[in-house]
């Protein structure tokens, strides 16, 4: 199960080794050429000798995570987040620490021991520690060093009706879409980029776009979805089950009209459900890619993801599969000359 393997792999920003290795093994049979860049992004070329516009599909492979920064005398581990983590979701979650995947828990003072005023406030980062069962600093140091990263220990499972839960659907769904797509053959050059360091300021994608310099680019993402009870209709961002979400505006990009309309038309003529991403906050790698060099025709398509950046996220498998279908339909339309730069 591809999504299970992708989401259960570790890939903190800047330390994407495990996820990169996993993706590499998946894509190498289909690649003309695979290589990494100086930051660690994985670039896979296919059909480079074919005529037609060079299309880059791009998905970031890193995830929000934690870093151990200090070991206390009592063996507890002090940590800081890598990327945007809401401290309120951290308490009482299990984590895997370091390459050895040492099990740990994030604990906080029990409610019985808290004063009334303490109980009303969120528990801050400075009050939380990772406990791996070490009884002293010396014991902890045998298993963990400062600089080790930690990710949520969340099992991928299909639940409910065509839904899946797991960690890091942001953005392993994008990675999954690219891997499913590379197995198909296209009559144009397609470059698949798995970028690093998106979660800490879109840092990996700029150098990749500069290097690949494609004629057009499509960014695949997992994006905010809050179609839940109490959310106002115009505050949901996306709706689960309504298909891939096409970006219109976010904090890093105003969508190119031509690309936007082409994506919508492609979905309509292939009878694939799709929706607009109806929120202006957040940003993705498109922000760097569309401004690279002389400017690159860029679009972004996302799988709606509930509880994004939290330990347990949720997607609709129908949305995921429809995103894969939309990306194929998009590439087929470019093959036929349906989108010119």
């Amino acid at each position: 199960m591809l999504l299970k393997r992708l989401t259960e792999a570790m890939g903190p920003s800047g330390f994407e080794d495990e996820i990169r290795r996993l993706i590499y093994e998946e894509v190498r049979p289909y690649a003309d050429r695979v290589y990494t860049d100086p930051l660690g992004s994985l670039i896979v070329e296919t059909g480079e000798s074919k005529p037609g516009p060079r299309v880059m599909l791009s998905a970031h492979m890193d995830e929000v995570s934690l870093m151990i920064v200090h070991i206390e005398e009592n063996g507890l581990l002090k940590f800081r987040p890598i990327g945007g983590v809401d401290p309120r979701i951290l308490v009482s979650k299990p984590v895997s620490v370091g390459k050895q995947k040492i099990a740990g828990v994030i604990g906080a003072k029990a409610i019985h021991l808290q004063t009334q005023s303490e109980r009303e406030k969120p528990i801050g980062l400075d009050q939380m520690y990772i406990d791996i069962g070490a009884r002293s600093k010396e014991e902890a140091e045998k298993a963990v060093s400062p600089g080790d990263t930690a990710v949520f220990m969340t099992e991928y499972q299909e639940i409910g009706e065509r839904r899946a839960k797991g960690k890091s659907f942001d953005n392993r769904v994008g990675c999954g879409v690219l891997i499913e797509t590379i197995r198909k053959t296209f009559d144009i050059p397609v470059i698949y980029a798995f970028t690093v360091q998106e979660e800490i300021g879109l840092r990996g994608a700029g150098p990749v776009a500069y290097r690949v310099n494609p004629d057009m680019a499509l960014i695949l993402e997992g994006t905010v979805c809050f179609d839940v009870i109490d959310a106002p209709e115009h505050g949901t961002g996306t709706v689960m089950g309504k298909g891939p979400a096409i970006s219109v505006i976010d904090s890093s990009t105003i969508a190119n009209r031509k690309m936007l309309e082409h994506l919508v038309q492609t979905a309509e003529s292939a009878k694939i459900p799709c929706q607009y991403r109806r929120v202006s906050g957040g940003g993705n790698d498109a922000g760097r890619v569309h401004l690279a060099r002389n400017g690159i025709l860029t679009g972004a398509v996302s799988v709606p993801t509930r509880y994004i950046h939290a330990p347990s996220q949720m997607i609709s498998l129908d949305d995921y599969e429809n995103t894969i279908r939309l990306v194929e339909a998009f590439l087929r339309s470019v093959e036929k000359g349906g989108l010119q730069v």
Binding site: E233, H234, V248, I249, I254, R278, V279, S280
Partner: peptide, 17 residues
């Protein structure tokens, strides 16, 4: 401004540019 959402009764929700 940009229109990002249309409500059931035809009102258009907007975001700033």
């Amino acid at each position: 401004i940009m229109a990002l959402h249309v409500e059931a009764n035809g009102f258009v929700r907007i975001v700033p540019i």
